[in-house]
Design a protein around this nucleic acid. Structure first.
Lengths: 360, 360
DNA sequence: CTGAAAGCGCTTACAG
DNA sequence: CTGAAAGCGCTTACAG
């Protein structure tokens, strides 16, 4: 065995001499297909294996310059723990037809570029005890996790304890400071949807608001209020109705709003499913969209462009949000310190479900 | 160290005595959260670690009864190699909003039950050389592969060479005998869609057929023809129009069919997207569905229930097909010999886009 | 067929 | 801060 001093001076050569029949000192034992191991990095850096282990796992007890040198080699040789597999996890509470695919696509795109496999996990409802998705996920030792499921504090602690970085996708509740997340600008989206209606000349603009327990719903509602104020319109509490984020919820709320004596000329729904419920209600009441009532949704689900009339809605950049979350998670997995909290801008997509009330 | 004989008699106890402060002999070192290791299985079975290793990896050189005993313990304690890649791959050519999620769900459900992670891979168009999805997939050494992408003969050969079993999901071309696949009963589905229209009393039933290169489209067309014959109706070649499987394709074909002098009273579209194109065409021509023309689709995409009127369509059990493909692939991965070729029954979902021509 | 021995990549606890 | 030592789960090559 060589001394540490000898290793520091001519590390690569000494490795080659001690180990194998090497001609190319760039690769361990001269075999380019052989994975770079912790011992190779240690020898090349002129430090011990435990020191590299500490750097790799982000543990303290390594001098800054030593750490820097080792990190440089790790990145130069593309070292990865052989049993730390090259996969990340994408966790859903439940795989939703309407939203899921855009998220999956965004994650997949970035992961593919970085040559990381994506394991898709569905936690399912807690009472559904089929399988052990959480334990199985931890056993896979993923490089990082992007979670669409709202993890409990316990689950987050468990990931932290196992040193698996994670990013929460579109959090529905307030997270403690320091928990990485990617969301959308819900407040700004609610504001621009409402401003659009006000600019078309609507004065009686109703909102079907979602449940208060969902943070994004509150933000959308506040955006609605803010835009009304800016437009010099008062917030009429009769024009705000709560409903679950479903087609049925939207339908019932809209029947309520549209059956009254002084019905609104426009409805902003908290999401597209609710907006489709407004379509149903309008049909039932014999009202035309947008001639009798304008409708704006939120999300821009694929179905929004397919319905009749095509739905004006606030586009959530799910694909880009997912990509950003994945980049963040993978960076954390590499031990980098990215910005850990992002909201991506929503954009209003104007289709044919809105018009000026003058047309009515 | 205890002798093998002593271990065979009181294996669990001996492990507890030798190792730790155990009270519950059911779990290694008394810790139920601690994973079951190869050494625990070896000691419990009264064999050496290498012997268990051979069993786990399916290598020869183990007596049949020893193997059986070890396998029983492995299954009893749910042993899994800590670093073993307990993953399978689900491969898409392109992740499609409309179809993908149901497939993913079906795969996920079965994989979760069998405690296997699902790595989702998108091959992407060949010219898109970002990443190396195929090589990366092989490097992950998955237990098996379910592929929605139509693999080339070469790719199939490569998987075979690496001993990775695979199942083709809904093959669009004829496969060589012996290639495992799961599809749907396209011919029967085309037949029942057409029979439904004939039973409603339609005599002029048109079909928008898909491209001939897609096997399932040919089957649906033949099902249409077969049902017409059974109903005593002649196959009028003017009533069969080819179109790509898109909304635009369906629209153009429907405009063609519905603008003629003797227009059909019903249209069977080869898929739901085409059927949505028929909706557009009808709107443009001022025709009502189903009053002026009945429409049947194929696939039962989520959007089918949401459009106005809700679309009568042939339901493809994508979820069950995916589950069956996954069971097949995992069984192949375990070295079993399942039935390797299945078509799952489609079912007609009658909604509101079809009615008797008498109503017209 | 079986398992002792050597070895691999990596982690942990701890002495200096 | 550093790394020698012990240890872990597992694999491989080989002696019996």
């Amino acid at each position: 065995m060589l001394t540490a001093g000898a290793m520091m001076k001519g590390a690569r050569l000494s490795y080659a001499e001690s180990g194998g029949t090497v001609s190319d000192p760039e690769h361990p034992k001269g075999d380019p297909t052989r994975p770079v191991t912790i011992s190779y990095i240690a020898e090349t850096a002129g430090v011990s294996i435990p020191t590299v282990s500490k750097v790799v796992n982000g543990r303290p007890g390594v001098a800054a310059d030593t750490r820097a040198r080792v990190e440089a080699l790790i990145s130069e040789y593309g070292y990865r723990k052989t049993n730390r597999k090259n996969v990340m996890e994408l966790v859903f509470g439940e795989l939703e037809d309407m939203w899921g695919m855009e998220i999956i696509r965004g994650v997949e795109r970035v992961a593919r570029e970085q040559r990381v496999g994506v394991v898709l996990t569905e936690f399912g409802p807690p009472q559904d005890s089929v399988g052990h998705p959480i334990g199985d996920m931890l056993a896979r030792r993923p490089a990082c996790v992007v979670t669409v499921a709202q993890l409990s504090q316990e689950q987050r602690d468990e990931l932290q304890a196992k040193d698996i970085p994670f990013v929460v996708f579109d959090p529905t509740t307030e997270l403690p400071d320091g928990v990485p997340y990617v969301g959308a600008t819900n407040w700004a989206g609610g504001r621009s949807a409402t401003r659009h209606l006000a600019q078309l000349g609507h004065r009686r603009i109703a909102m079907i608001a979602g449940p208060d327990r969902i943070l994004g719903c509150r933000a959308r509602l506040d955006g609605y209020r803010s835009a009304l104020e800016v437009a010099g319109l008062s917030v009429d509490t009769d024009l705000v109705v709560r409903a679950e984020l479903t087609t049925q919820g939207g339908r019932v709320a809209a029947l309520d709003l549209l059956s009254g004596p002084e019905r609104p000329t426009a409805i902003f729904a908290c999401n597209d499913l609710q907006a489709l419920g407004v379509y149903q209600a309008a049909r039932e009441l014999g009202l035309r969209i947008p001639a009798d009532v304008s409708v704006v949704g939120f999300d821009d689900l694929p179905v929004a462009a397919l319905v009749d009339p095509p739905l004006t809605t606030v586009h959530q950049p799910l694909n880009q949000m997912a990509a950003a979350a994945t980049e963040m998670a993978l960076a954390l997995g590499r031990g980098e310190r990215p910005q850990i909290g992002l909201e991506l801008a929503t954009t209003l997509t104007v289709r044919e479900s809105t018009s000026s009330p003058a047309d009515q």
